[in-house]
């Protein structure tokens, strides 16, 4: 019998590789492993045939057999990995989810939009060196009026404007009362904001409420100027709205400041071109401010010759309404969860 082991091997190798390649399942591959590499497999039987060979060719053929065996083993293993991979892939497909179904996670709550607004303001002012100071809502008229240069006969001190508890105890009409209290106890340099509830005799409607919120600012130091006031407000608005904001001052009148001004800001939505938010004016009324009146400084024990200062007052509701495009102040107090959850 003529033995062409070399030719047989090559044939086995080609055939085996073809079959491995076309195998579809792990089971098929296992069968191929048994058929070619098993104890009674074809490679094994070739090995057995080695004994019949001459001594000189035996090692050559032996090496050849081993390399074919190694090659087939590696092909088999690779194919196994491949099939395993695609089987996993298929099973993942069968586990697929509708990712558009709603999520299960528990909702966190929300801050009231007024607090969100206040927090943003606080952060900016604290960064500019202002401390946050608070004071009583039920206040002596001295702090709310007299020390702010508002004379006894002033219209604001009327029962038609101010809520009275007794003749000299009222619900504060402005958080400026905190300024007076603070200045009495602290020497300049002073940089504070005082946020809080204030009260005025107003029926509730879409822009008024008997209780609302103010954020007052006060700076007192040597050499504080109206130019400083402008710069402080410009810086604040740019940071608050995150874009360039122009501001303009209009002369106004407040008892506790002189000179006094009302401040408009260029519209933070359109930048001054005119839009719905600014009613096509390009400008939005923002706040009142001025240089602290010398009488106020004196009454609080600060020498107005040595020191000067400025004060400004924001209506928190107004700023929040503008920022979030809220069209009625009532919404803040109604606390409908469908409103609250939007912020």
């Amino acid at each position: 019998m003529k033995v062409d082991l070399g030719g047989d091997l090559e044939k086995i190798r080609t055939e085996a590789k073809k079959e491995i390649e076309s195998a579809k399942s792990l089971k098929e591959l296992e069968e191929l492993r048994v058929r070619y590499l098993g104890k009674k497999g074809e490679i094994t039987s070739v090995l057995r045939g080695l004994a019949l060979l001459a001594d000189d060719v035996r090692p050559v053929i032996g090496n050849l057999v081993n390399s074919v065996r190694a090659e087939l083993e590696s092909s088999l293993n690779q194919k196994v990995l491949k099939i395993k991979g695609s089987e996993l892939e298929n099973s993942l497909k069968s586990e697929s989810l509708d990712v558009t179904l709603p999520g299960k996670s528990r909702k966190t709550g929300t801050k009231h939009p007024l607090r969100t607004t206040l927090d943003a303001m606080k952060e900016i002012f604290v960064g500019m060196g202002f401390s946050v100071v608070s004071g009583p809502e039920i206040e002596w008229d001295v702090y709310n009026f007299d020390m702010l240069n508002i004379p006894k006969n002033h219209l604001a001190r009327n029962e038609s404007d101010t809520f009275f508890i007794t003749d000299d105890l009222i619900l504060r009409t402005q958080t400026s009362s905190v300024q007076a209290r603070h200045m009495q106890l602290h020497k300049p340099p002073i940089r504070i904001i005082s946020p809080g509830k204030v009260y005025r005799v107003d029926e509730i409607d879409s822009t008024h409420s008997p209780m609302f919120h103010q954020v007052e600012g006060l700076v007192v130091d040597k050499g504080v100027t109206m130019g400083n006031l402008k710069h402080t407000l410009e810086t604040f608005f740019e940071r608050f709205y995150g874009r360039e904001i122009r501001i303009r001052f209009r002369p106004h009148n407040f008892q506790f400041t002189e000179p006094s001004a009302e401040v408009d800001i260029s519209c933070f939505v359109c930048g001054g071109e005119g839009c719905r938010t600014c009613k096509n004016e390009g400008w939005i009324e923002a706040l009142g401010c001025g240089m602290v009146h010398a009488n106020v400084l004196s009454m609080c024990g600060i020498d107005p010759v040595e020191y000067s200062g400025f004060a400004f007052g924001f209506g928190l509701e107004r700023i929040a309404m503008q920022k979030f495009e809220i069209d009625s102040l009532r919404l803040f107090f109604e606390n409908d969860v469908r409103f609250l959850e939007q912020f």
Partner: peptide, 9 residues
């Protein structure tokens, strides 16, 4: 929880 704002009067 959502924060609310209430009248003090």
């Amino acid at each position: 929880f959502c924060e609310v704002l209430t009248y003090t009067m």
